[in-house]
Amino acid sequence: MNATAGSGEAFLSVDGSYNFAYLDEQTKRMIRRTLLKAIAIPGYQAPFGGREMPMAYGWGTGGIQVTASIIGMDDVLKVIDQGADDTTNAVSIRRFFRRVAGVQATEETADATIIQTRHRIPELPLTEDQILVYQVPMPEPLRRLEPREAETRKMHAYAEYGLMHVKLYEDIARHGEITATYDYPVEVNARYVMAPSPIPKFDNPKMQMMPALQLFGAGREKRIYAVPPYTQVKSLDFDDHPFKTQVFADPCGLCGAEGVFLDEVILDDKGDRMFVCSDSDHCRGRREAGHVGPRAAAAAALGYPDSEGDEA
């Protein structure tokens, strides 16, 4: 199409019908401004004019808008859903960007410049050259405690976060420990309390002083927030009940990895199951490097893991 923008910047279309990366240039500009604001105030939920995307709310419309606004022709995109590259949400978002932006896609964490994620942070530590984009269903960490939007905004503005600890207190009083295991609230840069999106609390420590830029997009709620590189991210806790992550008894059944987040896989209808890496790229990398887990043979007999990758 190559129409010319007022600024002299050339519009560019990859497939002949959509603007580069789907969104029009004005929208991208608006989202980039919001991103700058969000980065300037770590953890603050900056409102933005969220657009309708060609997919339903809840499928990552916020994350896609953020990715579409920051992606360039030279970027290499990785999309993960629950840690895996081959799940429906990841496959369709990757396909979307290959079509409208024509960018290179990858499954390898190390090769990616932009990683859009739902529910996980990759096991491989990220670098300064990477950007992690989270899809966020519920950006407001106080929502379940305080239903009034006007009130939660005031609570953020005045840093009145006592209520968040009342929730944690209730957990300990009833169950003896803090039972939140995902979307575990964090305090960013010693100021704003933030929902880290539904990542397992296992991943919370990875956010602390992460070298990569972390961007969060909530499409339905039309909020963007961010954690700049090397920022303090502290999981909320009590002095005498410190924050703890999940611990897994067994290593990954396929690659034998320890100290990673594992998913449970049911093997038959007799109760046999195994635990495998949630991060599929990490697991494949280890298997290719020759690591073999205790259940690898049994899994291979069942045709697992499926060696056929998707179109990426």
Binding site: G162, L163, H165, Y169, D240
Partner: peptide
């Protein structure tokens, strides 16, 4: 009210 004013010891 204790947590509101910063009590963090359960």
């Amino acid at each position: 009210r204790m947590m509101n004013v910063g009590a963090r010891h359960y």
